[in-house]
Amino acid sequence: MARLTERVVASFEQASDPRVRTLLTNLVRHLHTFVGDDNFRDAYGDWSRVSEIAEDGVLLVRPDGHVAWRRATAPETTQSAQDELLGALRRVPAR
């Protein structure tokens, strides 16, 4: 998992705004640490079937359990992924 994390973080070096780079780097490191535990693997594909989100998709859930944003599959480019995630984060109220 560590190599994957570093590859993903390295892809953010292209971000023009250093704040975006820091935000995405911290978010990815936190999430990769969280899902690194084997208890969070979807070995049978149940989560993907129920959520309608593929392995490369994403689900952003607020602390109150509300789904703030979802994407069934990964965007085509790193830049579009960054843009979509930042747009979603801007729409989520800070509490």
Rank of each mutant, 00 (worst) to 15 (best):
A74C: 11
T78E: 08
R41Q: 12
R21A: 00
R95W: 14
A10H: 04
F34I: 10
T73M: 11
A88V: 08
E84I: 06
V58F: 08
P75L: 05
P18V: 04
T78S: 13
D17H: 05
S51C: 08
H30S: 11
L85Q: 00
H66W: 08
Y44A: 12
A43M: 09
N26D: 11
G87H: 09
F34R: 15
G45Y: 08
R21W: 02
S11L: 01
T78W: 02
Q82D: 07
V58P: 02
Q82I: 15
I53C: 05
T73E: 15
S11V: 03
R70E: 14
R21C: 01
V8G: 00
N26G: 15
R91A: 11
M1H: 14
V20G: 00
E13T: 07
P75R: 04
R62E: 15
S16I: 05
L85G: 00
H66S: 10
A10S: 14
V9K: 00
W69L: 03
W47I: 14
P75E: 13
D46L: 08
E6H: 00
V58H: 07
R29A: 04
E6A: 03
D37C: 11
T22I: 08
D46K: 12
R7T: 04
R7Q: 13
F34C: 11
L60D: 01
E76K: 11
R19A: 10
N26Q: 12
R70A: 13
M1S: 13
F12V: 00
Q82P: 04
S51G: 09
Q14C: 05
H30R: 14
R91M: 11
L24C: 07
R29Q: 13
L60K: 00
E55V: 12
A88W: 00
V35Q: 03
G57I: 02
R90I: 09
H66T: 12
D56M: 09
A15P: 04
D42H: 08
H66V: 15
T73K: 14
D42Q: 09
T25I: 06
E84N: 09
S48D: 05
Q82S: 15
D38N: 15
R62D: 07
D56W: 10
R3G: 14
Q79W: 06
D83Y: 07
E84F: 03
V50M: 13
W47G: 14
R41Y: 10
L27G: 00
R70C: 01
I53E: 04
L31C: 15
D37W: 08
F12G: 01
V35F: 10
E6L: 03
D38E: 15
F40R: 11
L24R: 01
T33V: 12
A88E: 11
R41F: 13
D38V: 12
T33S: 12
V58A: 09
